[in-house]
Computed example of a mutant assay.
Amino acid sequence: MRKFIKAGLMLVLGLTLVAPGMTTPANAASKVKVVSTSKIAKKAYHGKKGYIYSSAKLTKKKHNMKNYKYTTWYGTKKATIKRAGKKRASLTYIKTGKKKGWIYSKYLTAGKAPINKNKKLKDDIASFNRAAMLGDSGFQYFVNFSAKNYEELGNSLGYDGLGQYNGSTEELTMTRKALLGIYDIFKGRFSKIQNANLKAMANDLENFSISSDNDLASEKLRSFAETLENLIQSLD
């Protein structure tokens, strides 16, 4: 009997010694005091590091900002917190799509995130190739479907393939569809004047009746293609 009593006392003593060192989620949360919260005007932010938490009490990490360097977040709330033994800190509530949470404000930079240029180029090449497939066989013959940069993409539309803009009404109509599709990919990416001029050319080409004058249609296609060529190459 004494052995059982002794064993029981040792177990209780062991739990007493271990318990203070254990931290439950509730205890962890209680160490963060939310001093104040307030709404702020919606503002764009981006960042390179820091965890995004589910609540201002920092109870659960939801995301790591290092995985979202090229993502723009929007802040709508601020909070001031106090942690045991530490100075007060500022948090910002941010959201992008369905992702949201609180992050230390010091990890945020005001403004939209930078563009991931490598990913953008790959996406542009894929979109360019899809649009080019809408053109007739003559148009596709001159397209560099293995292009690795904007210089090579632009060359697909340039002087090497001037003959591709002559053909039947059906072929010219297909080529127009391909060129306007390529325009849709890159519109708005140039200077204000260039964007305005390109838009005017696109509208004119889209509204032109090809069947009424194939020679004029060929000239419009050629002019539009050469303009696109130079502007796309300028993106490198």
Rank of each mutant, 00 (worst) to 15 (best):
102 W>V: 01
175 T>K: 01
35 V>H: 03
71 T>S: 14
211 S>M: 08
195 N>Q: 08
4 F>H: 11
52 I>A: 08
185 I>F: 04
137 S>H: 06
99 K>N: 15
216 L>N: 11
67 N>T: 11
225 A>W: 03
117 K>A: 14
83 R>C: 07
100 K>C: 04
203 N>Q: 11
116 N>E: 14
193 I>S: 13
218 S>P: 05
52 I>K: 07
78 K>I: 06
222 R>M: 12
13 L>I: 10
89 A>M: 11
43 K>T: 15
186 F>E: 03
120 K>I: 12
191 S>N: 08
34 V>S: 01
146 S>I: 00
44 A>W: 03
150 Y>V: 00
236 D>L: 03
64 N>E: 13
192 K>F: 12
234 S>N: 09
36 S>T: 14
213 D>I: 09
224 F>G: 01
166 N>R: 09
4 F>L: 15
52 I>M: 04
26 A>W: 13
100 K>F: 04
22 M>I: 15
113 A>V: 13
82 K>W: 03
133 M>Y: 12
18 V>P: 00
47 G>P: 08
151 E>F: 12
137 S>P: 00
117 K>Q: 15
228 L>S: 00
42 K>P: 09
22 M>T: 08
56 A>Y: 04
189 R>Y: 08
130 R>D: 15
181 G>Y: 02
81 I>G: 00
48 K>N: 13
116 N>A: 13
165 Y>R: 07
223 S>G: 09
171 E>F: 09
229 E>G: 02
128 F>N: 07
198 L>M: 08
171 E>C: 07
194 Q>H: 10
62 K>M: 12
96 T>K: 06
135 G>S: 04
10 M>K: 12
204 D>I: 02
12 V>T: 07
18 V>G: 01
30 S>M: 11
76 T>G: 00
53 Y>M: 10
76 T>K: 02
85 G>Q: 05
124 D>Q: 06
83 R>N: 09
35 V>I: 15
176 R>H: 06
225 A>Y: 02
79 A>P: 07
123 D>M: 04
190 F>N: 04
38 S>T: 15
174 M>H: 06
1 M>L: 15
215 D>P: 00
197 N>F: 12
33 K>Y: 04
11 L>Q: 05
181 G>T: 02
187 K>C: 01
214 N>E: 14
220 K>L: 13
13 L>W: 05
123 D>Q: 13
150 Y>I: 03
133 M>E: 15
124 D>G: 04
49 K>T: 15
185 I>K: 02
55 S>C: 02
110 A>R: 10
80 T>P: 04
205 L>Y: 05
18 V>E: 03
144 N>F: 03
150 Y>E: 00
25 P>Q: 13
84 A>Q: 10
37 T>E: 15
151 E>G: 11
101 G>W: 01
135 G>W: 12
206 E>P: 02
185 I>S: 07
119 K>Y: 10
9 L>G: 13
108 L>W: 07
137 S>G: 02
34 V>W: 02
16 T>N: 00
97 G>Q: 10
12 V>K: 04
79 A>L: 08
51 Y>H: 11
179 L>W: 04
182 I>E: 08
43 K>N: 14
39 K>S: 14
150 Y>K: 03
24 T>N: 05
154 G>L: 05
93 Y>Q: 06
175 T>V: 10
88 R>E: 15
221 L>W: 07
14 G>E: 03
11 L>D: 09
188 G>Q: 09
45 Y>Q: 08
117 K>R: 12
195 N>L: 12
26 A>F: 15
63 H>N: 08
126 A>R: 06
175 T>Y: 01
18 V>R: 01
203 N>A: 13
115 I>Y: 05
